[in-house]
Design a protein around this nucleic acid. Structure first.
Length: 486
RNA sequence: GGCCCUAUCGUCUAGAGGUCCAGGACGCCACCCUCUCAAGGUGGUAACACGGGUUCAAAUCCCGUUAGGGCUGCCA
C-alpha cells in the first residue's frame, strides 16, 4: 500500500454525470495503479441544492461501474468506511469553524460586512469605468477592531474572506505542466457565507489537508481555483497536494456537457442498455491513450496500464457513435447467458414471460445487431407477437408472386413432413436449400419469403435461424398464412 | 473585456527534431460474404489552424495571430 491518496469529490446536486464518472475513473485508476487509496467525499455545503437521492445515485452509479472506493460513505448510505471521516462536508462543520477562527486570529482572513447589493454596485461601477478585471475591493479588510465589533453588535450579517496575497502562484500541474497565475487579478474570496455555511474553496482545502490527500485530479474547470487553494494551504502552514487538471469533455457542438445536451447521467446510459464495460472503455479513451494501438480495455487491464502522464491536454468531444461501437464490441464479448440476464429488464418491459431457453435463442440471433440493449423490443417483437403481413414485401425484388408462392409451398411441404423438428440452423438451412434446388429456383424465391413471413420484417436474422428459434407451430402457421395471402 | 488552458483526419488519438508527402480507431464510402439487416473481412476518403523564427533538418522547440474551451458567485 502506497501513501498515495486521491479522492473524487462530487456535489450531490443531481445524478452522477458522465463527466464526474470520467474524473472518478481517472482517480480510481491512478490510485489502484499505485496501490494507493481512493476516497469518495460528498461536497454538500450547498444545502439548497444537495439531496440525499443525488448522493445515493452517485454512490450506486460508481458501484455499478465498478469504481469501488476504499474510504467514503457506504453504499447503503448509513455510515462510512475509512478513518478520516466523516466524508460528508455538512458533518464536518465544527472542524471548519476551528480553521476559520485560526485564520481570522492570525490576520489571514477577515469579516466582511458588505451586502450583496453593495458588491453588485461595486462591480457594475468598476465595469462602467472600464476596469478590465472587476474584483472585490477588500475594503472590509481595513475595518478596525472596534468597527467590526460594533457591526456584530448591531447584528449585521457578515461573510469571512481570505486575504489573497497579490503575488504570482506557480504550480506544476500533473497534466498541464507549469502553470503560473498572477493573484493580483483576484479579489479576496469568500470562505464562509453570511449564513455561516463554509464555501467550496475553503472546505476543499481543509478536507484535502485532513484526509491527507496527496494528488488532486479534477477537471480543468477548477484550474483557476487552484491558486486560491494553494494560498489557503500555505496560510495554514501546509504543503499543498499535487494537482492534475484533466481536460473537459464537450458536446458535439463543443459545449460543456450538461443536461441541456441530451443524456448525461450514468443512469440514463445504463437504462438505454449501455454496458458498464463499454462506458468505462469509452470514458478512459476520452483523454487518455496507451500509446500502442489497443483500443479495447477492461477495467482490470486499465489498472495495469494506466499512466496519468499520458493524458491528453486538450478537451475531447463526446462521440456517441464511438460509444455505440464499443458497446457492440462488449455485447459480443459477453457470454450469452450474461447477455440474457442483462436483457431481462427489457423483455420484462415487453411483458414477455418466456423461458430462459427461448430468450437465449433470441439473444443469440440478435446480439450482433445490437448497439444497445434498449433496442431489444423493436428487434424482437415478432418472437412474441404476430405482425402485419405486407403482400408486396413478401415477394423478393427479383422474383414474382407466383414463384414466391411456389417456393413457400415447397418449403412448407418439406417442413411439414419432417418426422422430427431439427435442432440446428444448419439443418434448416439444408432443408430450405433443398426446396430451392428441387424447384430450380433462386435462393431469394424461398429464403426471402420464409424470412419475411416469419419476422414480418425486411431486415432480420436468416430464415434458418428464425425456424430454429421460433416454436414449430408458430413457424408453420405463419408460413401457411403467407401462402394464403398470395 | 480580463485571467488561464488548449490547438494532428468530421470525432477519439499515435507522434516527445530526422525512420512522417504523418500511423491506428470510430464514422462515412466501396467491395467480399449474402435472401435481407447486422456481424466479420478487404480497400478507400480524410488532418499537422495560420504567420514568423531557431536548426543542416520541425507536426514536434520559441514568438505572435487566430480559433475553441474554462474561470471571472455569499455554486461546486
Amino acid at each position: 500500500m502506497s501513501n498515495i491518496r486521491v479522492r473524487i469529490a462530487p456535489s450531490p446536486t443531481g445524478k452522477f454525470q458522465i463527466g464526474n464518472a470520467r474524473t472518478a475513473l481517472f482517480n480510481f485508476l491512478f490510485a489502484k495503479k499505485s496501490g494507493g487509496t481512493f476516497i469518495v467525499r460528498m461536497e454538500d455545503t450547498d444545502q439548497s441544492r444537495s439531496t440525499k437521492e443525488s448522493e445515493e445515485n452517485i454512490l450506486k452509479s460508481m458501484d455499478w461501474l465498478g469504481l469501488s472506493w476504499d474510504e467514503g460513505p457506504t453504499i447503503e448510505g448509513d455510515g462510512y468506511k475509512g478513518s478520516f471521516g466523516p466524508y460528508r462536508q455538512v458533518e464536518r462543520l465544527n472542524t471548519y469553524d476551528e480553521y476559520i477562527n485560526m485564520l481570522i486570529n492570525e490576520g489571514k482572513a477577515y469579516k466582511c460586512f458588505c451586502t450583496t447589493e453593495e458588491l453588485e454596485e461595486e462591480r457594475s461601477k468598476q465595469k462602467e469605468k472600464g476596469i478590465a478585471a472587476p474584483k472585490y475591493s477588500g475594503k472590509c479588510k481595513n475595518l478596525s477592531k472596534e468597527e467590526v465589533e460594533a457591526n456584530i453588535k448591531e447584528g449585521m450579517p457578515f461573510t469571512v474572506r481570505f486575504i489573497i496575497k497579490p503575488e504570482k502562484v506557480k504550480f506544476n500541474d500533473l497534466v498541464k505542466g507549469d502553470v503560473e497565475i498572477d493573484m493580483s487579478n483576484y479579489g479576496d474570496p469568500v470562505l464562509v457565507r453570511s449564513d455561516g455555511m463554509p464555501l467550496y474553496n475553503f472546505v476543499v482545502v481543509i478536507d484535502d489537508l485532513l484526509m491527507k490527500i496527496t494528488h488532486v485530479i479534477r477537471g480543468e474547470d477548477h484550474i483557476s481555483n487552484t491558486p486560491i487553494q494553494i494560498q489557503i494551504h500555505e496560510a495554514l502552514g501546509n504543503t499543498p497536494p499535487k494537482f492534475g487538471h484533466i481536460p473537459l469533455t464537450l458536446t458535439p457542438d463543443k459545449k460543456k456537457l450538461s443536461k441541456r445536451h441530451g443524456a448525461v447521467s450514468i443512469d440514463e446510459y445504463r437504462e438505454m442498455g449501455y454496458l458498464k464495460e463499454a462506458l468505462i472503455n469509452f470514458l478512459v479513451l476520452l483523454g487518455w491513450s496507451s500509446g500502442n494501438e489497443q483500443e479495447i480495455y477492461s477495467l482490470e487491464e486499465l489498472i495495469n496500464v494506466f499512466d496519468l502522464s499520458r493524458m491528453q491536454k486538450s478537451n475531447a468531444i463526446f462521440d456517441i457513435e464511438r460509444l455505440n461501437w464499443l458497446n457492440g464490441i462488449w455485447i459480443r464479448k459477453k457470454d450469452i447467458n450474461e447477455i440474457v440476464d442483462l436483457s431481462k429488464p427489457y423483455f420484462e418491459k415487453m411483458n414477455v414471460k418466456s423461458d430462459q431457453e427461448y430468450l437465449n435463442k433470441i439473444m443469440l440471433l440478435i446480439r450482433d445487431r445490437l448497439k444497445y440493449l434498449s433496442q431489444i423490443p423493436e428487434l424482437t417483437d415478432y418472437f412474441f407477437n404476430e405482425g402485419r403481413l405486407d403482400k408486396q414485401k413478401l415477394v423478393f425484388k427479383k422474383s414474382t408472386a407466383e414463384t414466391t408462392k411456389k417456393g413457400l409451398e415447397a418449403a412448407c411441404n418439406k417442413l411439414s413432413s419432417l418426422g422430427r423438428w431439427p435442432e440446428s440452423t444448419e439443418d434448416f438451412s439444408t432443408i430450405l436449400a433443398g426446396a430451392v434446388a428441387d424447384n430450380g429456383m433462386a435462393n431469394g424465391d424461398v429464403f426471402w419469403p420464409i424470412r419475411y413471413s416469419l419476422s414480418f420484417s425486411e431486415t432480420s436474422p436468416s430464415p434458418a435461424e428464425l425456424l430454429w428459434a421460433l416454436p414449430k407451430e408458430v413457424s408453420l402457421t405463419r408460413i401457411k398464412k403467407a401462402i394464403d395471402a398470395l
